[in-house]
Amino acid sequence: MDPFVVLVLCLSCLLLLSIWRQSSGRGKLPPGPTPLPVIGNILQIDIKDVSKSLTNLSKIYGPVFTLYFGLERMVVLHGYEVVKEALIDLGEEFSGRGHFPLAERANRGFGIVFSNGKRWKEIRRFSLMTLRNFGMGKRSIEDRVQEEARCLVEELRKTKASPCDPTFILGCAPCNVICSIIFQKRFDYKDQQFLNLMEKLNENIRIVSTPWIQICNNFPTIIDYFPGTHNKLLKNLAFMESDILEKVKEHQESMDINNPRDFIDCFLIKMEKEKQNQQSEFTIENLVITAADLLGAGTETTSTTLRYALLLLLKHPEVTAKVQEEIERVIGRNRSPCMQDRGHMPYTDAVVHEVQRYIDLIPTSLPHAVTCDVKFRNYLIPKGTTILTSLTSVLHDNKEFPNPEMFDPRHFLDEGGNFKKSNYFMPFSAGKRICVGEGLARMELFLFLTFILQNFNLKSLIDPKDLDTTPVVNGFASVPPFYQLCFIPV
């Protein structure tokens, strides 16, 4: 058959498939802009700032609406009420993970971030239990974070109060905490193996944040037939998995079943207990991918939040002064901060919360999916439909947070200066898919920041009023603009 005829037939089939998918069930789905064949609503979305586009569309179609990214149908949730109703009140029905062709290629359905069903539930339950087990290797997770915080302070001392970009050092600290939990080992910041790991993690975040990856996920045929950065992403992930597998083999040879040292040991012990169960989800494949998931999810998000926190503290020296006064009063100079201190430091706690609220790190979270046909607000959402959640619409709700575009710790303080919780605080998402490392991340943010401010004054290279804190939105995360500062020993 003539190649031209084959091409026309293929394009015609794709067009018909697109029209059929977009028209099927439209009477039951939430409203939304009319999609174009094949490309859907992509032309109506700013790929570099999806969150802003969703906010604009919500003003037209309401808090629940339908979009098509290519052939992929998505239902968008915008605003606290619908997000709570879906992710919390109907948590089980909305607990699936959205379709990610690239991740599915890399992870093969294993791990904790992109798995679904029984596998996801069992691996998540085990990971939560293990991360909360403060007795691994007779050292609590808090001990590990405190140790890394001391190392971080010593690295900052080496800058000798000269101007520096904190990106690298602030990236090393949370990565080392995860390494300590998974591998029972922290690395020197100049260790070549550690630097290679950091390089792969950072490069992957840069790649994932590009519009090209959005295109690959919406048109998965590209993955096999086109060159691009997605190939580098898959190569980096394969490198990390190979490295983790080597460490798993080392653990198998040296493990003491009665004295687990780290996450890998705990997983291997669980595998041993379930070795007679042919349906067990505790396999080497799941261990390797879960460890890679924890490394990827637990490094860049925390380091970016820390980097943004220091920029905001530079911009608002009056806030920094209040935090340091609270540190001096509650902790002093002669001991290290600990998590028990947080309950006695409402202002510092409010500042950490406000940093996370203000920066809105992951504006749309990772997409969910419905696990069955769901009736939601008089609409029928078919099983498997991807759910896109606007966390921006919750964290920047102007009824809950007056002047949401302003950095103001009073958003989390009552009139008496006591810490005030808010149900709208969802930087880790909400419901059954809430970030498994939430507790660890909150511990790291509090301890790293208090250790830094206990030991250093922060000095800006320019007038604080002239510092730009506008986030650089890159399609996946909101990151701070480049800046330098000086760490002046107190």
Rank of each mutant, 00 (worst) to 15 (best):
I244F: 09
T301E: 04
K160V: 10
F183K: 03
V177Q: 02
K375C: 06
F263A: 03
E154G: 10
V145F: 03
L395M: 05
G135W: 14
C175L: 14
Q22V: 12
G79S: 07
P427N: 03
G298Y: 03
N258T: 12
Q146A: 11
I381L: 10
L234P: 04
N133M: 09
F239I: 15
L15G: 10
D165M: 02
D341Q: 04
V64D: 02
D373I: 02
P30A: 03
E203F: 05
D165E: 08
E318P: 08
V352L: 12
E253F: 14
T450H: 03
F168L: 13
L152T: 03
K399P: 02
P317R: 07
P35S: 06
M406A: 12
G417D: 09
P260C: 06
E104F: 15
E93M: 10
T470G: 10
S115L: 02
P63H: 07
F239T: 12
S429D: 02
M129W: 00
G137L: 12
N231G: 09
G111I: 02
Y347L: 05
L77A: 02
M129E: 15
K190V: 10
E328I: 13
V5T: 14
V351Y: 05
R108S: 07
L14G: 10
V355H: 00
S242I: 13
H396D: 04
I42S: 12
F482M: 15
L380G: 06
S180R: 06
P211D: 06
T385V: 04
V370I: 07
L445M: 11
A291D: 00
K322H: 07
E326F: 00
D165H: 03
N217R: 11
Y225S: 09
Y358S: 05
K459A: 10
P33F: 00
K118C: 10
I488E: 15
L467V: 11
T304A: 12
I39E: 03
V6N: 05
R329I: 11
K52Q: 10
Q340L: 11
G27K: 13
L245S: 12
I269A: 13
I182Y: 02
F69H: 08
L268T: 03
K59R: 13
I284G: 05
T34K: 13
R377F: 05
E122P: 04
L156E: 00
C486G: 07
M136A: 15
V83G: 03
N378L: 03
L195P: 03
P481I: 08
T55C: 15
G111S: 04
R139M: 11
I462L: 13
P35G: 08
E154N: 14
L90H: 13
Y358A: 06
L313P: 01
F451T: 15
D466F: 09
I244M: 11
K459V: 07
S460I: 06
K399D: 14
D188Q: 11
R21P: 09
L380V: 12
M136G: 12
E300V: 13
P409S: 02
P404V: 06
S393A: 06
Q278K: 12
G417W: 07
L156F: 10
A321Y: 15
T364Q: 11
L391H: 02
R342Q: 14
G228I: 04
P33K: 01
F134A: 13
N202V: 15
E241A: 08
L16D: 04
G437F: 04
P63N: 12
E72D: 10
S23W: 14
L170D: 01
D243K: 15
Q276P: 12
I264N: 00
P402K: 11
L152E: 01
F448L: 05
I264P: 00
V50S: 05
P35A: 10
K138Y: 12
I207P: 05
P63C: 08
L29W: 12
Y61S: 02
K273I: 09
R26I: 12
E444R: 00
S58D: 03
L310V: 08
D341K: 02
V76L: 02
K459T: 08
A350L: 01
D360P: 10
L201C: 05
K160M: 11
F419K: 04
N258H: 14
T302H: 03
K275T: 09
M255R: 06
K420R: 13
F448P: 04
I207N: 05
L268A: 04
C179Y: 14
D466P: 05
V75K: 00
S115F: 02
K247L: 12
T450E: 03
D466M: 13
D463A: 00
T469P: 10
H99F: 12
K235F: 08
T34P: 14
P363G: 04
E155P: 01
I264S: 02
S58I: 02
D265V: 01
V8F: 15
V248A: 06
S95I: 05
G416D: 14
T304G: 10
H353P: 00
K52H: 15
H411T: 01
P3L: 14
I47C: 13
G27H: 14
L314P: 00
T229I: 14
L268Y: 03
P363D: 02
P166K: 01
F407K: 00
N133H: 11
E326P: 00
E326R: 01
P31V: 05
C216S: 08
T348N: 01
I45R: 04
F65S: 03
P427I: 03
A149I: 02
Y61R: 01
F376N: 00
E72M: 04
N116A: 06
R124Q: 05
F446M: 03
F376S: 00
S422D: 02
L170P: 03
C164E: 06
R119I: 07
I257L: 10
K432H: 14
P35R: 12
D408V: 03
F183V: 04
R342S: 11
V351T: 11
N217A: 11
P37W: 05
I123Q: 05
R73D: 02
N217S: 09
S209E: 07
P337M: 02
D191Y: 03
P163Y: 12
H251R: 06
L294E: 01
D143M: 09
P337F: 01
P363E: 02
I269V: 09
N259V: 07
R150G: 09
D46T: 07
L156C: 08
R144A: 13
S390A: 08
Q193W: 15
R442L: 08
I284H: 08
E274I: 07
V394G: 03
E81N: 13
T55S: 10
C266S: 11
A430V: 12
F114Y: 11
H344I: 05
N455D: 07
C10E: 00
L461S: 15
V436M: 12
F134C: 12
F134N: 14
C13P: 08
A350M: 01
Y358R: 06
A477P: 07
G111N: 03
I45D: 03
P227I: 07
R357K: 00
K160R: 13
G98T: 10
G117T: 05
T55G: 10
R377P: 00
L312D: 00
G40L: 00
F456L: 04
M255K: 12
H411G: 01
F412W: 06
Q279V: 12
I182F: 05
M74S: 07
S51E: 04
K232A: 09
T470R: 11
R150E: 13
S365A: 12
P480T: 09
A350D: 00
I181L: 13
D349R: 09
V323N: 02
C216D: 05
E405L: 13
N218R: 15
G384H: 07
I222A: 09
S429Y: 02
T320P: 06
K432E: 13
G296M: 11
D2T: 14
K28R: 15
F412T: 00
K270C: 09
N398Y: 14
L16W: 09
P404Q: 06
G437L: 03
M255V: 13
A350W: 02
P163M: 10
L170I: 08
S242T: 11
S58E: 05
E285P: 12
R329E: 10
S254C: 08
Y68M: 08
L449W: 02
K273M: 12
D341S: 04
S280A: 07
K421I: 12
N217D: 06
R206F: 06
S58G: 07
K399T: 15
D256K: 08
T392E: 06
P33I: 00
